[in-house]
Design a protein around this nucleic acid. Sequence first.
DNA 1: ACAGGCATGTAAATAGTTACATGATTCG
DNA 2: CGAATCATGTAACTATTTACATGCCTGT
Lengths: 184, 184
Amino acid sequence: MELSATAYVILGMVSREARSGYEIKVLVDETTRFFWAASYGQIYPELKRLAEAGLIEGADAPRGKRKRTVYAITPQGEAALKEWLRQPPATYELREEGLLKLFFAGVLPREEAVEVVRSMRGYRAGQAEQLRALEPKAREKEEAGEPFPLIVLRGGIEFNERLVEWCERTEAELLELDTPEPSR
Amino acid sequence: MELSATAYVILGMVSREARSGYEIKVLVDETTRFFWAASYGQIYPELKRLAEAGLIEGADAPRGKRKRTVYAITPQGEAALKEWLRQPPATYELREEGLLKLFFAGVLPREEAVEVVRSMRGYRAGQAEQLRALEPKAREKEEAGEPFPLIVLRGGIEFNERLVEWCERTEAELLELDTPEPSR
DNA sequence: ACAGGCATGTAAATAGTTACATGATTCG
DNA sequence: CGAATCATGTAACTATTTACATGCCTGT
């Protein structure tokens, strides 16, 4: 049975403790989101499919009077997760509209091309900040014996910081294109 | 009229000279692919839509006896492209299965977690190499007065090289987790 | 003669987002 | 009381990939 990578996100998210669809969504937004997002429109139907396939198991777990279903991984689910983890990763996709605009920025006046890079820089700086705000939680997990979330998060922070740097250099480069060093 | 970012890829690709769908696909694969891909299934239908909307114009341009249609941008198309370029970029997506696997690698024995990072490193090293192979073409364009493709390409090379570095550091870090410095 | 590249296209499937609907509970 | 958060879900839409079909032309 073929599962999508998003199915494995869910499998991974319930592999340590049982969680509700809502909790999975919140967790995804706090952790994997910057390199693998998932929406309710994927999560809830996928939970049903995984339960039908016997890879997870739902159980009623109301909070007070509020209905709630949490899903736990089954032994088959854990086997499937591990098998997937052992396969070499296949998906590597980047969609960066800023780079796309920059690529075509030759049709714009120079000042507007610089503006594209500035937008990218602003976004990446904000992103780095948001990720840094998540560090304390990840550090707690690390102290509890789960080192990977923190490793990945730090990778994300670094990635964004490097991009900010690159944007700064590129901005400078673009400005120099207009006012070349006087060659004496 | 709302256009997808992929529509603008096409608009940009025909903005300097008239090109066929096939040529656009080849060009995309050689240039924007690493941050914005496009398949035939998108390109050909989109060419029709753009032509109907009057943003590009098709013309027969057979090569020998082989039929061929090239599309050129119209003034309205150029206006639409420029307007889009002036909007701040909105799409920033990364889907990296390797990071996803690493995030969940706590359920694997340590050696297999390292393997995930090694796969990522291998992929990124190969990617950097492929992009470096495209540099000569981009440099030609630069010499012809189009500096942006080279700027973007160099960004891509750098991005991949940094990731390779990060993978190396992370591999070392993971190995140390198992054999901690003897604290004396 | 055949392989490989040029060239155009479509159908089907999969993936993913967005927006909406519904209702309970908690906190200020 | 009202806002925010918890909680579950679906419908409609958009995007995108994959695989296939077709056929010409060029070089070996």
